[in-house]
Design a protein around this nucleic acid. Structure first.
Lengths: 109, 109
DNA sequence: ATGGCTATTCAGTGTTACTATCTAGTGGTA
DNA sequence: TACCACTAGATAGTAACACTGAATAGCCAT
């Protein structure tokens, strides 16, 4: 992937996934496919799974193992209350950053 | 600093500084102060200096040593052609990401 | 049984911002 | 003089995160 995108995703990819989970629960493979549909063509599967493990260990999501007809059991993640709080905080941080950057882009310093 | 902001700055702080330099040349201490004015209260000085060394080594900026009446000589950085190209690429990457996030925020998945 | 799709895990790497500390030059003040 | 504050830059070590590449595992069709 482009190096700039890789670096820019740090911190934001987590928010993207949490925001997606706030819409509806999903499992890792599904999230990866969805990200690719959204244009994040080069996101590695390993990246998504590592992220999911992190947010699970931080207690931001609940996990349920669900059998699949197409392969090994899925780990379905859903945002819990703590995760929602964290997501709200993410949006505040994002908004601050986005505002500063928009100011910078049009209008110079 | 808030951990979310720390992670989100990875990749974007570089663009912010480059964008600032595209407006006018500046030296490290000045950039740090300016960032604080912009609301990035907790950015460490060491972070800015490290970033400036990186973009210098990548050849994105030109450097000039300028004596100061207030202290040791300043290293004044200015964006060069290569840096401008890199900044344009940064804005494209940022736009993509910002669009995706705005979509996510209003409208869900 | 083999290959293809689904699904998850893991070890190792590179990049970046942070903390904490250090060096240095200038000017003011006790 | 000695000390302090402000200006200005450098550096060693740490934490966090996305990536690479590979391995494991289950299901189905040929």
């Amino acid at each position: 992937m482009a190096k700039q995108m890789t670096e820019m995703l740090k911190g934001t990819l987590e928010g993207i996934v949490l925001a997606s989970l706030s819409d509806r629960p999903a499992y890792g493979y599904e999230i990866t496919s969805w990200l690719r549909e959204q244009g994040f063509n080069d996101i590695a599967e390993g990246t998504v799974y590592a992220l999911l493990i992190r947010i699970e260990q931080r207690g931001l999501v609940d996990v349920e193992r669900v059998p699949s007809q197409k392969g090994p059991p899925r780990k379905v993640y859903s945002l819990n209350t703590e995760g929602q709080t964290y997501l709200d905080e993410f949006w505040r941080t994002w908004s601050f950053l986005a505002e500063r950057l928009e100011q910078l882009r049009d209008g110079g310093k």
